[in-house]
């Protein structure tokens, strides 16, 4: 209950909230992870509950693994990339601080999108603009929270935060590139070993 209060406090008053999170040691990594899992569950909830008009895929099966992967994967990627960038740029945040800040920042997604999913059941296309608007609000609010969270946790100014966020995205790209490269090379290696094995098998 206390944790929820803190999380809501961050959502409504981000700068002092994130300050407390880090320097008053009020944040818990567990809660941040719970929120991220909550976001994934929200996505599934949306698929199952929101009305046919706004969700033509309602009847199609939900892939749990890919949903979780699509939420948790980017989260970890972003946090790690941000940590790698900010460590080089005198950021004060530790890895756990970043995970916490970004995790807590995702709360508006849950707060807005779950009631919205229920609400769509009484809406028609005439109100479609409202639905899009609310969804956008949830997204931009979360983005703003990420921004202010990064800013507070690392004790950056506005400009430096923007620069690091940009660099974080670049780092994300680099990491994905290396991951794909690694994956490819690994498979080539596996293939190579496999070929040698077959060759040996056929020769002797």
């Amino acid at each position: 209950m206390e944790n929820l209060k803190i999380a809501l406090g961050i959502t409504l008053r981000p700068f002092s909230g994130f300050w407390d999170l880090k320097y008053e040691k009020k944040g818990k990594l567990k809660v941040a992870f719970l929120i991220i899992i909550g976001v994934a569950l929200t996505m599934i909830f949306e698929r199952r509950v929101s009305a046919f008009l706004f969700n033509p895929y309602r009847k199609l099966p939900v892939n749990l693994i890919s949903t979780f992967r699509n939420v948790i994967g980017p989260y970890i990627l972003f946090c790690v990339a941000n940590w790698s960038v900010t460590t080089l740029m005198d950021g004060e945040g530790k890895m756990s601080d970043i995970f916490m800040a970004v995790g807590y920042a995702m709360l508006p997604m849950i707060l807005i999108r779950i009631p919205l999913a229920i609400l769509t059941n009484v809406l028609t296309f005439d109100e479609a603009a409202m639905v899009t608007f609310l969804k956008n609000i949830a997204t931009f609010w979360s983005y703003f929270l990420v921004f202010s969270g990064i800013m507070t946790v690392h004790q950056y100014g506005m400009f430096k935060t923007l620069v690091t966020l940009f660099l974080t995205l670049v780092a994300c790209g680099v990491m994905i590139f290396i991951a794909i490269l690694f994956y490819n090379l690994l498979w080539q290696l596996v293939g190579f070993v496999g070929t040698i094995y077959t060759e040996l098998l056929l020769r002797f």
């Binding site: 046919f52 008009l53 033509p56 009484v122 028609t124 296309f125 005439d126 479609a128």
Partner: peptide, 25 residues
């Protein structure tokens, strides 16, 4: 309309699920 997956067009709004729902509501 739901069985037929027909949501109605968002621009003309003259038939489809959205029209039926507007009237039903």
């Amino acid at each position: 309309f739901e069985l037929g997956n027909y949501r109605g067009s968002a621009t003309s709004r003259d038939n489809g699920y959205t029209k039926a729902m507007t009237e039903y509501r």
